[in-house]
Amino acid sequence: MGLRRKNKSLAVLSHEFVIQNHADIASCLVMCLLLGLMFEDPAKYAIIFIAVQYNVTYTTDDNSEQFHFYDSGPKDIATIFFYMLIAINLHAVIQEYILNKINRRLHLSKTKCSKFNESGQLAFFYLFSFIWGASILNAVRRIHDEPNITWKDYSHSHMLFQVKFFYICQIAYWLHALPELYFQKIRKEDIPRQLCYICLYIVHISGAYILNLQHLGLILMVPHYLVELIFHASCLFYFSGENKQKGFTIWALLFVMVRLLTLTLSVLTFGFGLARIENPHFPITDGNFDVLPVRIGCLGAVCLTQAWMMWKFINFQLKKWRKHVKNQIAKKIIATTKNKQTKKEPNRG
């Protein structure tokens, strides 16, 4: 892990050296980019990594007020890379100064420790993202006043700063999760599962950002993150020894509701809303992706993902129910054997 002093000297750029010092390496890259702002020539390139790009300013007819919006473009890749480095540092800080200290107190096994770290990292991220996303939704008054905001006035290529920065950070976080599988020495049997949901997040969030479906993506992300926050918070309590099932019950109810909400909004947006305002004369180069193949692809991707999530959810609940039944049967067997023994003891006397 980064941010921890190691007594053992390692070969520079060896696997162990990179794993133990990856956060320090990321910090050095961040500092180099920040130092680039101090000089005129490098600042032209450093600003592309640090600041949100593609600012567009509109003024009213009487020039009394200005409105600042942001578009998307190739330079966003550099910005995403910079905030991916920030995410690597934050990941290391949370792991080193919070989760590792809790692990030492709980004395968890390696398997539980790995799952505890995963749930801990995701719980922090989901909490932060939920609060941030909810504040953006609350700030955008149109979402409360216009239920059809997910498709009205498409394309939504002009974004507010908070909306664009939110998407930049979301994509950066999930991209940083890919190298973290290597940095954190995730067990081989856990890599396919984590890699699957990481890639799904990257594809869906990037798709919403590139296809100018930011409103729909933001509305769907906030309740989804709330559900995931409840699940991973419940997992943390479970691993800490507090077997509280209320959290998992609340998560199960909200999980199904959010899946229905996601499907409903997606069908309304792609099947009805965008289909009615399709404009074939508005080219894709201007940010218009409201064409039949794209709509079918997006709706199909959402439906398949929700179906897969429900399948995993049902399997999880069945596995949990079978475990509960086995425990109940074992308890009954123990209780009956004790009763038989207590009945036989007086007869012996």
Results as ranks from 00 to 15, higher is better:
F231A: 06
E146N: 15
F49T: 04
A87V: 02
L108S: 10
E278H: 09
T111L: 06
K326V: 03
F239P: 03
I47Q: 13
K331A: 14
F165G: 01
A92V: 02
S119G: 02
A307K: 05
I191R: 06
H156K: 08
S240G: 12
G2W: 04
D145V: 08
W151K: 06
T264C: 11
K112L: 07
G247M: 06
F166G: 06
L318R: 12
N347S: 07
L85A: 05
H144V: 10
N117F: 04
T111M: 04
M84F: 08
I102L: 13
V52N: 05
L292R: 13
I77Q: 01
G273F: 02
L99N: 05
G2K: 06
Q53T: 11
N138C: 08
A307V: 13
V222D: 07
Y238F: 12
T150K: 00
I329A: 11
L181S: 08
G247R: 06
I230H: 00
V52D: 01
D71M: 09
N21W: 09
K332G: 01
F69D: 07
R259W: 05
H107N: 15
M221F: 12
V140C: 07
P192D: 04
V140F: 09
M310R: 00
E96I: 07
L29F: 12
K164I: 04
A78K: 05
S206N: 00
V93T: 07
S240A: 15
E65K: 13
Y45K: 12
E228P: 01
P280V: 07
N288P: 02
H15Q: 13
S206V: 02
R142A: 13
K101C: 06
K326M: 08
N327Q: 11
R141Y: 03
K343D: 13
T269Q: 05
M84V: 05
F49W: 07
P179L: 11
N212W: 02
S72V: 15
M84P: 03
F316L: 14
A23H: 04
S64P: 00
A11Q: 08
F237G: 09
F116V: 08
I296A: 10
S109P: 03
A177L: 12
T305Q: 09
T269A: 09
